[in-house]
């Protein structure tokens, strides 16, 4: 027999059997594929948009903000590099959170009738976001090589920060998805919260150097700080690290654990609530 499943009332809620994990991978793959196929349906330029978007964003933000701050040419170059290195990673992170968190509610009809592991839906969004991230990274990489600004270590460092981006994004997506089953409110607040997060994270702005107390502590608990500075380290070999970055990494890791367990806990009750 190809598979068998044994369920006891006393099974701990965090348990996930091997078959379910396999189903989860298949579902995530199928959903990612679906999203990617539908992404640029009914657009004239199709896949070109994946190239145009990062270029336009980086160029636009650099020119507009550079003018606002009245930067000289050298400053403009630094500002552009600072932004180009961090932006694709940030976009991926916010895509995972903003699309992953409502994914259970959006696929309600399927979720209440099919018992696949619930993490599959946010995971699919992470894969979809990764495609955009990969395209944007190739654009950025090409630009940095032309400007002679790319670090020689980039291929070693980039995967490390990319993995952390996925983990911390998924952590928030899992947690918010688990809460959204009972309280949809979180989904209404989310777009605003992510907008605010963009401005308090060092994405368009350079790395900050706050003390570890009061508002500074809250600043360092933001995983996007480690993401943005991490990509600068990876792409540009800038010396961004401070001891406080450890806090930012730890917060991303902890949220991943908390989110995963929350979603697994809620999974047993999802078809009662949705």
């Amino acid at each position: 027999m190809s598979s068998s499943r044994e369920v006891h009332a006393s099974d701990p809620w965090w348990k996930l059997d091997r078959d379910s994990a396999r189903v989860g991978r298949r579902v995530a793959g199928a959903f990612a594929r679906r999203d990617i196929q539908l992404r640029y349906v009914q657009t004239r330029l199709g896949w070109l948009w994946a190239l145009i978007q990062p270029v336009a964003l980086i160029a636009g933000l650099t020119l507009v903000l550079g003018r606002v701050f009245g930067l000289p040419d050298e400053g403009l170059r630094q500002f552009g590099l600072n932004l180009a290195a961090a932006l694709p990673g940030w976009i991926w992170f916010q895509y995972i959170v903003s699309q992953g968190a409502p994914s259970l509610v959006h696929n309600q009809a399927l979720v209440v009738k099919s018992a696949f592991p619930r993490t599959a839906l946010p995971n699919a969004k992470a894969v979809v976001g990764f495609v955009d991230f990969a395209v944007a990274s190739m654009v950025v990489g090409t630009g940095l090589v032309l400007l002679d600004a790319a670090s020689p270590w980039v291929l070693l460092r980039l995967p490390l920060i990319a993995v952390f981006t996925a983990i911390s994004g998924l952590g928030w997506a899992y947690l918010l998805a688990a809460i959204s089953v009972r309280r949809r409110d979180v989904l209404s607040v989310l777009p605003v919260a992510l907008q605010v997060l963009f401005f308090v994270s060092p994405v368009a702005l350079p790395s900050a150097n706050f003390d570890l107390n009061g508002w500074g502590l809250i600043y360092w608990l933001n995983p996007a700080v480690a993401i943005a500075d991490g990509f600068r380290w990876a792409w540009l070999d800038w010396s961004v690290w401070q001891p406080a970055h450890a806090l930012s990494f730890a917060s991303g890791g902890i949220i991943f654990g908390v989110g995963l367990l929350s979603l697994r806990y809620q999974s047993r009750r999802i078809s009662e609530f949705l």
């Binding site: 369920v7 009332a9 099974d11």
Partner: peptide
């Protein structure tokens, strides 16, 4: 598998 039993157990073969 949509609901988790509060009592007892079951096995599915296949």
């Amino acid at each position: 598998g949509l609901l988790h039993p509060d009592e007892g157990s079951y096995r599915i073969y296949g």
